[in-house]
Structure formats: structure tokens, C-alpha cells
Design a protein around this nucleic acid. Structure first.
Length: 944
RNA sequence: AGGCCCGUAGCUCAGUUGGUCUAGAGCGCUUCCUUGACACGGAAGAGGUCGAUGGUUCGAAUCCAUUCGGGCCUACCA
């Protein structure tokens, strides 16, 4: 199928003049999926034997879990950055021979998804209660089937090389089963408890939410001071509050025991205004003498601090609101009012009755529901909690001991800080969509026993009643996603997948979910995978041999940057500044967009996404494309059968290893290629994506295209009478180098590299994809300092001549003779050897070597290694030339001055490393020569 | 309240443990060039002393302190 396609398109290497990513990208994305190129199975266990090829169990393993996007999600720039980085790392590992598993899936996203469907229902004029639980949940599943795959489809467009055969959904049967198992085990271990506590309650979502789901927003609020009359006295005690309506539920007034102002009131009672209830004055740490009046009202049912104080003093808890945050019957005459309406009425009544003392402006951080923005109400309710301290302990250790490393390392501190101040986790949610808590309440009034079990019990274990009803709450979404590193690998079954792929190698994620998700995975992983051991052969091959503990969910975490808009603002729907990655892709191509994100992703800094960069990288793709056209054009000129490295049988076997070196440019480019390969591998190993991307960019464009291709053009001569052997060799080198460069670039730009690579083999590649080819590793033996130094001089010479031509305003088509002086004979020889290059690249007619310095002539340029003079009869602008020379001299002398200062400093000579001193000396010598030459020129021109 | 990050050319950003940084790149800008890979191109240029101040050091864009400006996160002080 594909071969046929190539037969049509590429046999003649008839590539369009400019690169059009659209069709090419979707074609390869589909191809990779259809061919299941990225599906992996665990290699069998046991020592290598005849039946078991050695290499299978000794290959290293790389496992990465995709942070599951919400089923409700739409791809945004954050996803794209995340996925680009993951794909780069994954492809890089795969090409380096790792058994590479990248596991994709989606999260059921409790509240978000439920809201989505509720909104849909609202359009039909219905509420979820109209349908009832069962019908509603069925409706959500329908929604999921219809729209839930959208984000993964978008992901396919990015070329993400995930194993689609292993795609999971957090509510799949096997994962749900694991969730129940975890819940029951935690309960049995006493790590889950149920109780009436103050939780964050969203009155709109009608559910409890965790601390992390509350977003604080600074608002200008008020602080009201209310006085309560002390019983049996004419005195009043004044308290301050930001929430006067809660006073209806006050059950005490607290003062600090050390606060002498109130000592005489200890043990007395006050009459609660409006409610006319007697409540005690207690002493508690809750009240801090420095704040306000030093006295504080205590409302155990509506404030977490007051709740704790209430427990300490055994105070009644009077809940004055219902689940919608409307006042209930406990609120007396205010019953039925919304909380904010009640506030107004309470304040008015207090004012009228003379209890309101003052109203002050007060800045407060108002807690709002992360999902819907409704002001969160601390509410007393029956919830399920995970006792976090024992889990956190191990999770802390795992990071402190280095079993898990977090990159960049400042996040390590943040993580540990959080772990030290962690509270119990409220895991129950009053929603219908999610994993229902595996607990059953006995319906017999006298019993009410709650039973936690893996399967629905037949009868109540306490009273034997069969009237059992499952608890209606579901679990926090992050409960199930926190288990994914092992549940996706078959847990609670002990599977081969686990032995091979657990611990996963790496997690790449956003800072935002460090606590929501990352911390929870670490806690659950360390707890439930305790005692787990990765297959020793695989562990060793993967380089984790010294790590003691295999219970951790991943060995490394890389926290990526936040993508902001061009103005550095956080992208958000409400601001309307969201850049849609698919739109960007549409305009510039996936490769260019990926490259942008990679090139801008310096660790630890946010990315201000800027389209002009993407436009630039689209140009880069085009450059690659045209370099490929150039290569194919030349390959086509070689007789069929003698095509270098492109035969159907052998394929392009040579790679860069088979590169034939003869000329300076060959030795040079080979050295450069190996250096770049070394740098890129280094950069990727430490997640310096920007460095990897930039190194390849500079190499491909600045060295390979700008210099190498230009330099070899004369050798690619297949005309009658030309040296065809030399031409074929040059062509072979070109192909080999191109092949290497494509492989180097592939993780960042998978599509264009695949397209060209496949075309190089005319549809009959030795492997199904470049993604399976080997990644270039540096061969240090090919580093060639001499070639690089010589090439630098040659480039310098060519640029100098071009520069002089521009200054002398020589017509571009006119070839000029030049004179060159080089006092070192080797340099002269080198230039002589490469005179053709100089002549062609600088439009030089001929080169004449002279025996003395050329500084005195106008139209000359000097460097430390050579002088060059362009012979062209035109008066130069003496004033301008003087100006330029003066500026140059100034710079040189500044350099000399600072260098001499350093070299004259004995401390420097004593303390600086030898090579630094030596380099400086060398540099100084060169500067001195240049200074001399520049001065003579200034004299010659008669500059002032 | 605590913590973190950023402030380098007109714009967007690099600059790994302080020393070839006489500070780079892309876009933009100036001049020139349609030469059979590429005008999404080529050639040559102009442009910043690294927010400010002080310190450590033989040596600082790079480390420390203070300060100004921008952003983010965490927090149960009424």
C-alpha cells in the first residue's frame, strides 16, 4: 500500500518545491498506528536460554505513563508541550534500543464530566435528579462514548508514539476492580475512616471537594465587629467576623487564657444576639490576643478552626445551612434564605438592635470551587477520609533518599514542604459519576452498620438484615488516577508486565498536578507495591541496578514549564487568550510546532508562546525539505545500480559510520556531526530540550546547508568527462550524513524526517520506520580539532572577502582577484588546497599569494592568521573606513587592556587553571598582531 | 503570611558547575542578490554591558545581599 504510494510519488524524487506538512503528517500518523509500531509486549521471564534470545531480557526498558487527560478535555498548549516532551524522550529511548512503553489513557474526571452532562440536560430543561442515578450515569457513559475520545484523536495528530493497544480509561472494569481492592485494603488497614467533619463544600456541585480543589481569590471584603452581652453583667464582649450569618450557629465565645483583659469573664455566659441563646465564654488557643479584640466567636459547624475548638471543649455543633447553602430551620427566622441574603438581614437586624459595633474594609482570600467558581462553604458532613500521615512518611522518604528524583530539583523542596504539612485526604464526593464507594449501610433503623467489602454483602454482618444499601458517594477522581502506575499493569494480579515495566521510568507532568496526582501516586505506589521487585536482568540493563527499592511508581519526575501567551499571561478560557495548538498546527505544521515547544523549553522557566518562532521553524522544515531535494537531485544523476546507499537490497547501510573522508570539508563535517550527536544525547539525558533542538538546528542549517553543501557542489559533477568516482563518493557521503541528521532530528520532528527517510529508500526501507532506526551516538575518534580549526580559517577568509566586496561595492557578478598573505606555511598550503572553494564561495577570480603583509593597502582585511586584499579599482569611502577601523581598534585595545591586567596579576596566574591562562596568552598574541595591522592601516589611510 | 520563578538587542528567548562571553539565536530592521535545493532562500551589516545598588572573587550576565518591576504557587488567623 505504502510502497505503491511511493512508487507514484518518489520514484522520480519529484518532490514539491516547498514542504507542505498537512497531508504528509496525517498520513504518517495513521501509518504508525496501523502498523502498530509502538505496541510492545513484555519480554518473557527467566534467564536467557536457547529458546529465549538473550537480547530480549537484557535490553533496557523505558516506561512512561501518559498523564491521563480528562475525557472532557480539549487539547491545549500545555498538553502539547507535555506530549511533545514525552514523545521526544520516548522516541529517543526507542531509537537507542530500549523496550519502550508509553501508556495512554483518559481520566473519567468526576465533577468535570458530570457538569458537562448536566449542562446538556439543562438544555433539555432537565436535572440529573429527574433522571435518577442509574439513568444519569448511563447518560454520562453515552456522552463519553460519543465525545470522550476527542482528546486522544487530537493526540494522534501530534504523532505521539504511544501504545494504543494498551489504552485505558479510569473507569474500565479492571481498573474499577483495582480501585475497590485498594479501598477495601486501606479500610482493613485502618487507613480509611468515616466521620462527620468540616469539609469544603460546593453548594452548586452539591459535593465535598478536597483542599486542593479550592482556589483562593483575593477579594475586598468586610470585617464586622459584633458585641455580645455578657449575662449577669452590663458588659459586652466584642468579636470580629467576616461571615456574620454564621453567628446564628455560634456555640461559644473564645478568649485566650493569657489575655488579662478577659480574665474576669472566664466561665461566664453571653446571650447570643438574634437567637437569644446562652453560650459560654471559653479559653482557647483559637483566640489570639493580638488580633482584633482578642475575642472570637466559635461556630463549630461552619469553620474548620472552630470545629477543632468545638471538639476540644465538647461544644454542640449547630449547622445552620443546608446542602445548597440556604439557611435551615436552625437559623430561626432566617430559614430558607440564601447565605448571602441571610448575611444582609442579619447585619441589618444587628444594626437595628444595637449589636453591630463597626464595619471595616478587610482583604480576604475567598475560597472558590475550582470547577465552577462558586464560593466554597465549610460544611459539617459525613465523609470518608484517608489517614495520610503513614502514607506520606514513606512517600517523603522515597524522594529524600533519591529513589525518586524530581527535576528541576527546586520542586523537590516544594514537594517535601507539602508532604510535611499534609492533611488527611477527603476522598468521598457526593456525585453520581465515578467509582462508587464499596460500602453498604444497613437499612435497619436500630443497626445502621456500615460494611466495607469487595463485593456487595448479602446481609448485614451485625444484625443480619438484608436491607442493605450501597453508600451513594463516589471517590475523588484522583483516587483512581493515583493508582495508575500499577493498575494499568494488571494489579492486583501479579503480572509479567509489572515485573518488566514497574517502576515506570519517568513521569513528565505539569507543576499544577504535583500534589493532586504525583504525590498521591508516590504514596499509593510505595504502599501497595511494597516488596515488589523488577525483573533483575531488566533492572540492571536499564541502569537501575543500584536502586534498592522497586515500590516507587517512577524513578524520575520531570516537571515541565507552563505555556503562557505571548504577553506572559497564563492562558485561560475566561481571559480568552488560549492559543489552540491545532490551529497552530494547521498553519505551521506539527513538526514546526513541536520544534517551537522543544526549542523554548528551558527547564524551570515558563514558555511565552510566540507564533513568530513557529513560523521560523516552519522555514526550518522547508530548509530540510529543500536540502533533501538537492540530495535526491544528485542521487538521480548517479546511474541506477550505483546509487550510494539507496539500493533496495542493502538499503542505506552505511550511516555516518561508512562515511568516506578525503577532503577538509568531509573531515570537518564528520567531526561536527559527532560533536552535535554527543551534545544532543547529553542534552536529552538531562531534559534540556531547547539545547537539543538548537544544536540540531544550528548544525543542519548553519553548517550542513550553509557550508557543507556549498563546498561539495563542485564534486557532484556527473557531466561527460567528470570524475564520476569522486562524484559518487561525494554523493554517498551526502546521503550518509543526511541519514544521520534525520535520525538525530527524528524525535523532535518525526514527520518530515520519516517522509524523507522513507523516500531515501524509495519505499523499500530496511525498517518499517525511521522511528525504529538507531539513534546517532558520538564517535569520539571522529572529533577532529585540526579540521575544525582549518575550516574556521577558511570560513573566515571567505567571509572577509565577501565583506570587502560589499564594502567596495563590487557588483555581485563580477569576479575579483585577491591577494593573500599567510605567514604560516601550513595555512598557506591549506588555502591553496581549498582555493576552489574560496573562488566559488567568494566570487574570486584568482588567488595570488604574496610574501609580505597586506595591511597597507585599502580594501584589505587582516586576521591573526592571514591578510587578504581584494583588488578592485574603486575609491573606498575613506571616512567610513576610518570610522570602522577606529571602532575595531578600540575593541581590540579594550581586549588587550583587560587581558594584560589579568596576565599582570599574580593571583590570576596562580589561581586560574592553566588552560585558561594559556588561552588568554594565545588570544593576547593574536590581538597584538591585529592591533599592529589595524594601526598601520589607519596610518596609511591618514585617519585622524 | 510563607515559598518559587523571571527581568539579557525593537520583540521573543538562549547563555549547564563563575574563566575562549570581545554576551548568542530567531523574528524585525538596513544594503545587496531570483546563481538549476530552498525568496519559508542567499550575502553583508546595524543593534544590548546583561533591571538597580552594594559585596564575594585574580575574574561575575553567571555566586551573595539589598532594592525596584513582572508573574506564579501554597496558607485554617477570626
Amino acid at each position: 500500500m505504502l510502497t505503491a504510494f511511493y512508487a507514484l510519488t518518489f520514484m522520480a524524487h519529484d518532490l514539491p518545491k516547498s514542504y507542505e506538512p498537512g497531508a504528509i503528517e496525517t498520513r504518517w500518523a495513521d501509518y504508525w498506528i496501523e502498523e502498530k509500531l509502538f505496541s510492545v509486549t513484555a519480554p518473557p521471564a527467566g534467564p536467557p536460554s536457547e529458546n529465549r534470545p538473550t537480547e530480549r531480557t537484557t535490553r533496557p526498558v523505558f516506561t512512561l505513563l501518559l498523564p491521563p487527560p480528562n475525557v472532557t478535555g480539549r487539547l491545549h498548549m500545555g498538553h502539547m508541550l507535555n506530549q511533545t516532551q514525552m514523545d521526544i524522550i520516548v522516541r529517543w529511548h526507542r531509537m537507542r534500543g530500549f523496550i519502550t512503553l508509553w501508556l495512554p489513557g483518559t481520566d473519567h474526571a468526576g465533577i468535570a464530566t458530570q457538569m458537562m452532562v448536566e449542562r446538556q440536560l439543562a438544555k433539555e430543561g432537565k436535572k440529573r435528579r429527574d433522571l435518577g442515578r442509574e439513568k444519569f450515569v448511563e447518560r454520562v457513559w453515552e456522552w463519553k462514548r460519543e465525545y470522550g475520545g476527542a482528546i486522544l484523536d487530537q493526540m494522534k495528530r501530534l504523532g505521539a508514539s504511544v501504545d494504543w493497544d494498551r489504552e485505558y480509561f479510569t473507569m474500565d472494569d479492571n481498573l474499577s476492580h483495582a480501585v475497590r481492592e485498594v479501598f477495601v485494603r486501606l479500610y482493613e488497614e485502618g487507613l480509611i475512616y468515616r466521620g462527620k467533619y468540616i469539609v469544603n463544600w460546593c453548594p452548586r456541585c452539591e459535593t465535598a471537594i478536597s483542599d486542593l480543589e479550592v482556589k483562593h481569590e483575593d477579594v475586598a471584603g468586610k470585617l464586622w465587629e459584633i458585641r455580645y452581652p455578657v449575662i449577669g453583667s452590663s458588659e459586652f464582649i466584642t468579636v470580629a467576623t467576616t461571615r456574620p450569618e454564621t453567628m446564628l450557629g455560634d456555640t461559644a465565645i473564645a478568649v485566650n487564657a493569657k489575655d488579662e483583659r478577659y480574665t474576669h469573664l472566664h466561665g461566664k455566659y453571653v446571650l447570643l444576639p438574634l437567637m437569644k441563646r446562652e453560650i459560654p465564654i471559653i479559653t482557647d488557643e483559637l483566640a489570639q490576643p493580638e488580633f482584633g479584640t482578642g475575642a472570637v466567636k466559635v461556630t463549630p459547624a461552619h469553620d474548620p478552626n472552630d470545629f477543632q475548638a468545638g471538639l476540644r471543649h465538647d461544644l454542640p455543633q449547630i449547622d445552620v445551612m443546608d446542602e445548597h447553602a440556604h439557611m435551615n430551620q436552625n437559623a430561626g427566622v432566617y430559614a430558607g434564605l440564601d447565605r448571602f441574603e441571610a448575611r444582609k438581614r442579619v447585619l441589618a437586624d444587628l444594626q437595628e438592635q444595637g449589636f453591630l459595633v463597626a464595619e471595616k474594609d478587610y482583604a480576604l482570600a475567598l475560597g472558590k470551587c475550582d470547577r465552577c467558581g462558586t464560593v466554597v462553604e465549610p460544611r459539617l458532613s459525613e465523609q470518608w477520609f484517608i489517614k495520610i500521615a503513614p502514607l506520606a512518611e514513606r512517600a517523603k522518604e522515597a524522594v529524600e533518599s533519591g529513589e525518586i528524583t524530581i527535576v528541576p530539583d527546586n520542586y523537590q523542596t516544594i514537594y517535601l514542604n507539602w508532604m510535611n504539612n499534609i492533611h488527611d485526604w477527603c476522598v468521598s464526593r457526593q456525585l453520581w459519576w465515578g467509582h462508587r464507594i464499596p460500602a453498604w449501610t444497613c437499612g435497619t433503623e436500630a443497626c445502621g452498620e456500615v460494611t466495607v467489602a469487595r463485593e456487595a454483602p448479602q446481609k448485614c454482618p451485625r444484625c443480619g438484615s438484608a436491607k442493605l444499601e450501597q453508600v451513594s458517594d463516589v471517590l475523588d477522581t484522583w483516587f483512581s488516577s493515583g493508582l495508575l502506575p500499577f493498575t494499568t499493569l494488571g494489579w492486583p494480579e501479579k503480572t509479567r508486565d509489572q515485573a518488566v515495566f514497574y517502576p515506570t521510568t519517568l513521569l513528565i507532568t505539569a507543576y499544577e498536578i504535583l500534589f493532586f496526582w504525583v504525590a498521591r501516586m508516590i504514596m499509593f505506589g510505595c504502599h501497595f507495591m511494597q516488596g515488589h521487585e523488577q525483573d533483575p536482568a531488566i533492572k540492571k540493563a536499564s541502569g537501575w541496578g543500584d536502586k534498592q527499592n522497586d515500590s516507587v511508581p517512577f524513578r524520575e519526575v520531570y516537571i515541565h514549564a507552563l505555556v503562557r501567551d505571548a504577553e506572559r499571561q497564563k492562558m485561560s478560557k475566561t481571559k480568552g487568550n488560549v492559543v489552540d495548538p491545532l490551529e497552530v498546527i494547521e498553519r505551521f505544521g506539527t513538526d514546526a510546532t513541536r520544534f517551537t515547544l522543544a526549542a523554548m523549553a528551558a527547564p524551570g522557566t515558563d514558555i511565552a508562546f510566540n507564533e513568530s518562532r513557529t513560523d521560523g521553524y516552519r522555514a526550518f522544515a522547508n530548509k530540510i525539505w529543500n536540502a533533501a531535494r538537492f540530495m535526491f537531485m544528485n542521487v538521480d544523476r548517479v546511474e541506477p545500480g550505483l546509487r550510494p546507499g539507496l539500493t533496495a537490497e542493502g538499503g542505506c547501510q552505511m550511516g555516518v559510520a561508512g562515511f568516506l573522508t578525503s577532503t577538509l570539508e568531509d573531515r570537518w563535517i564528520l567531526s561536527r556531526f559527532n560533536r552535535v550527536a554527543a551534545d544532543v544525547n547529553d542534552a536529552l539525558a538531562t531534559y534540556r530540550f531547547h539545547e537539543a533542538a538548537n544544536r540540531i538546528y544550528d548544525f543542519f542549517w548553519g553548517e550542513f546547508c550553509d557550508w557543507y553543501l556549498e563546498l561539495i557542489k563542485p564534486r557532484l559533477n556527473f557531466d561527460e568527462g567528470a570524475d564520476k568516482t569522486a562524484a559518487r563518493a561525494a554523493c554517498a557521503n551526502l546521503v550518509a550524513l543526511f541519514d544521520g541528521a534525520l535520525r538525530l532530528l527524528h524525535p523532535v520532528m518525526p514527520f518530515i524526517t520519516e517522509e524523507i527517510w522513507q523516500a531515501m529508500y524509495e519505499g523499500r526501507p530496511p525498517l518499517k520506520s525511521i522511528a525504529l532506526a538507531s539513534y546517532p551516538q558520538a564517535d569520539k575518534k571522529q572529533f577532529n580539532l585540526a579540521a575544525e580549526a582549518e575550516m574556521a580559517i577558511l570560513q573566515d577568509l571567505i567571509v572577509s572577502v565577501r565583506n570587502l566586496r560589499a564594502e567596495l561595492k563590487v557588483e555581485p557578478k563580477v569576479k575579483v582577484p585577491i591577494e593573500v598573505f599567510a605567514h604560516e606555511p601550513e595555512i598557506r598550503t591549506m588555502i591553496e588546497h581549498n582555493r576552489g572553494a574560496v573562488e566559488r564561495l567568494a566570487s574570486v577570480e584568482k588567488i595570488m599569494f604574496v610574501e609580505s603583509s597586506l595591511t597597507k593597502l585599502p580594501g584589505a582585511r587582516s586576521t591573526a592568521r592571514f591578510d587578504v586584499h581584494v583588488i578592485f579599482e574603486r575609491k573606498i569611502d575613506v571616512a567610513a573606513e576610518c570610522e570602522r577601523l577606529k571602532k575595531e581598534l578600540e575593541k581590540i585595545e579594550k581586549g588587550i587592556a583587560s587581558g594584560q591586567k589579568q596576565l599582570g596579576n599574580e593571583q590570576f596566574l596562580a589561581k586560574a587553571p592553566a588552560n585558561v591562562v594559556e588561552n588568554l596568552r594565545k588570544q593576547q598574541q593574536e590581538l597584538a598582531v591585529l592591533q599592529e595591522k589595524t594601526r598601520s592601516k589607519l596610518n596609511e589611510l591618514g585617519c585622524q
